[in-house]
Amino acid sequence: MSNVLPSVPADISFQQAIELTQSLVSCLEQGTASDAEAARTIAALVQTVDGARGFFVGYLTDDRSLADHPSTAVVQALRTSPEVVSDLLVKNLAMSTAMAIAHRRNENLEMAAGSDRVRSRSAHLMMQLQLPEIEQKAQQLRAATESADGEYLDFLNRWKYDAEQREAIREAIDGEYFDDGAAAAVSAGNGAVWGDRLGREGPVWRTDSGDRAAESFWGSIFAPIQQWFDQHPWLEWLLQHPLWLVGLLLLGIFLFAGLIQAIGRLTENIWLTLLLLPFRLAMVLFGGIVWIGRLLLGGKRSSEGRSIAAAMPETTPEHRLQALLDRLDAIRLEEEALLKEVKEILAAKEGK
């Protein structure tokens, strides 16, 4: 039997892992891939977190019954990466259990049946794997459902599970779904598998008909978002610390509002300058005309003054002295006349 499955890249993305898993399930169902080829492919997928997330999304939500009865090759391949596989399976069990409750509250029985199917498949795989890591992580999750502490407390708080949902998770961990009939209890319907955020810790749903086009459509939407979160882990930290997130959002809004105001003031000043520019140019032009007029009129008046000055007799100290002497002679003659008149008046009085 020839190898019909492509090799798994070392840096496989979440979306690529989903598509590869879907091809793997199809090949296994059609008998075109051997158990050995399937084991090699699955083992390569679960060596990375993105590959393991994509595998569980494609495998546990598949509409076909192949995932209800995992083969020995599948189980052995999953055991090659116990840490990653154990963490995702425990979260799948918890979140599908909680989502089944949420769907029934919303009277969405079809989606609830899908969540039940993922829960049953996850429980059956956990039972078959029998990994110590699964037991350890399951007990850590159980402890977090009962107290305000534990390894998985942030996981529970992030999804805001209430008391009823936490109780159901605790019952699932205690073994309610870990019986020999777990695989037979898988029911038909939609399914949801959870990994971390947007695939790791978020749902990836499939339609009843397993429509590949719709699945690819939603995958193309969420894959870039998932990759962006992977490239910016600080965003996940912000989502886990809402007070910091709110504070940064308020600061961003404040800074953005200040930027808008500054841009508004700058725009207002520019428009005012443009509107006043014609008036200022007119004032400058008018002032230039007035200055030129004054300059021309001032030159004419200066010429007239020089002409008048030229027509007037020249005044020197000698001319001034002569004028004063003439004035003194006139005063002297007038004084003599006045004295003569006084004498005549006095003589007339003495003769009487």
Rank of each mutant, 00 (worst) to 15 (best):
F155Q: 00
S2V: 07
V49F: 03
D326I: 08
V118Y: 09
S86P: 13
V84Q: 03
F254I: 08
R119C: 02
W244L: 15
A311F: 01
D68H: 06
L129W: 13
P82T: 06
K91Q: 14
E314V: 13
H232P: 06
E334P: 06
M1F: 08
L339N: 02
L235A: 00
R332D: 13
R64T: 11
E83S: 12
T316K: 08
T315P: 06
A337V: 11
R104P: 01
R104Q: 15
E167H: 05
E268P: 00
G298P: 02
V4P: 13
A52Q: 02
K160M: 03
D196Y: 12
Q240K: 02
Q47M: 04
A123N: 02
W194M: 13
D174P: 08
G299D: 12
L324Q: 15
E341H: 10
W205P: 03
T48P: 00
I345H: 14
G298F: 01
E164M: 08
L45Q: 00
Q22A: 06
R327E: 13
Q128T: 04
E314L: 07
L239N: 04
V85A: 03
P233T: 07
R64S: 15
M95C: 10
R332M: 09
A100G: 12
W234R: 04
G288K: 05
N190G: 12
F286I: 09
M312T: 12
Q136W: 01
F14W: 12
S302E: 12
E37C: 09
G199P: 04
S220G: 08
L93V: 14
K349R: 14
L89I: 00
R142C: 14
R170W: 05
R158S: 08
A168Y: 03
V74C: 01
L249A: 00
Q15D: 15
I253F: 01
L296V: 11
V57G: 08
I292Y: 09
P9I: 01
L66S: 05
G298K: 04
G191H: 01
I42C: 02
L245E: 03
L266C: 03
Y152H: 07
S96I: 07
S81P: 03
R142Q: 13
A310I: 10
D35A: 05
T41I: 05
L346K: 15
E314G: 09
I173L: 15
T273F: 11
Q140E: 07
A98E: 05
L109S: 11
L24H: 01
L24K: 02
F155Y: 03
E133I: 07
A257Y: 03
A33P: 01
G199V: 03
W291Q: 07
N269I: 15
F14I: 02
I253D: 00
P9L: 00
T315R: 14
F279Q: 15
